[in-house]
Amino acid sequence: MPLPKYHQVYLVLREQLDEGRFADSVPGELALMAQFGVARVTVRRALERLSSEGLISRTPGRRTRLVVPAAAPAAGGSGANGGSPGMARANLRGLLENLVTMGLHTSVKVIEVATITASTQVAEALQLKLGDPVQKAVRVRSTGAGPLSHITTYVPAEIARKFGRRELAKKPILMLLEESGVRVGRAHQTISARLADNVLAERLDVAVGTALLAVRRLIYDDAERPVQWLHGFYRPDRYTYELELSRVGSVDAKVWVSKDLSAQFT
């Protein structure tokens, strides 16, 4: 059974809030009606849901403002990308090799490359100061079947100064990082779900509200310095992860651990 329209709008807006897409206020009701192609009552129900969860503050006759949450205390090893303490994590062996392979076997369209100032979320993830310069690059990868993924990457400007739009259109960004002198060490990745908003829907050739595979990936160099933060959205009908698990431990305390991973796309 499909989700009600207001709930789809609510989910998309909640994701956009989480990503820091709005500076200090949410677009007005008329703008949201045009964005999602829905009636005002639908937008209002979505905003009421966000307000009831304490994510926005609504005052009649004024802008709908964002509510900035108090900073949560750091938990062992959890950074800006770490997720909740109970969220399962997997050590994805072979991840970096698979990413380069995918980059070499797909075509890419560069949507945007610009040097911007780091937002709070970007600064925390890359361990920079708020407002430090970073390169933001937006690309859409495709296979012969059509659009596959919508990728946004953030790289510290001092690292990204050696590559731009032309280079990003020709090579996977991991190869460009290594050519810039970065010795890639490891990656931390979280995988969740996201409903397509109007921008993602247009660029990935899906309907607004379509479920997408959402990936956040933080790449570190061999000195444990974050060098790239990625937000990726993949069409699940064209992209899958395969993870092989093995049982380890004693008879009384066996657990599943990851053994291998491959990324498949069509």
Rank of each mutant, 00 (worst) to 15 (best):
A114Y: 04
T115C: 07
T115L: 09
T115D: 14
T117L: 13
A118H: 12
T120E: 15
Q121C: 00
A123R: 10
A123F: 11
E124S: 10
E124V: 05
A125Y: 11
A125H: 10
L126D: 08
Q127T: 10
K129L: 13
K129Q: 15
G131C: 12
D132V: 12
Q135T: 14
Q135Y: 10
Q135G: 11
K136D: 10
A137V: 12
V138Q: 10
R139Y: 08
R141T: 11
S142T: 11
S142C: 08
T143F: 08
A145P: 00
A145I: 11
S149T: 12
H150A: 05
I151F: 06
Y154C: 06
A157C: 06
E158Y: 09
E158G: 08
E158R: 13
E158W: 07
E158I: 04
I159M: 04
I159Q: 02
A160C: 09
A160L: 10
K162Q: 14
F163W: 05
F163S: 06
E167N: 09
L168W: 11
I173W: 14
L174Q: 11
M175Q: 15
L177T: 03
E178P: 07
E179G: 13
S180G: 13
S180R: 05
R183D: 13
V184P: 06
G185K: 03
H188M: 09
H188T: 09
Q189Y: 00
Q189G: 00
Q189K: 13
I191Y: 04
R194K: 08
L195V: 01
A196W: 02
A196Q: 02
D197Y: 01
D197W: 01
D197I: 02
A201V: 02
E202T: 10
E202R: 14
R203N: 10
L204I: 05
D205V: 04
A207L: 08
T210D: 02
L212D: 01
V215A: 00
R217V: 05
L218I: 03
L218F: 03
I219M: 04
D222E: 15
A223W: 01
E224L: 03
R225P: 01
R225H: 07
P226N: 03
P226E: 02
P226V: 05
L230V: 15
G232C: 07
Y234D: 01
Y234I: 04
Y234F: 13
Y234E: 04
R235P: 00
P236Q: 05
D237S: 08
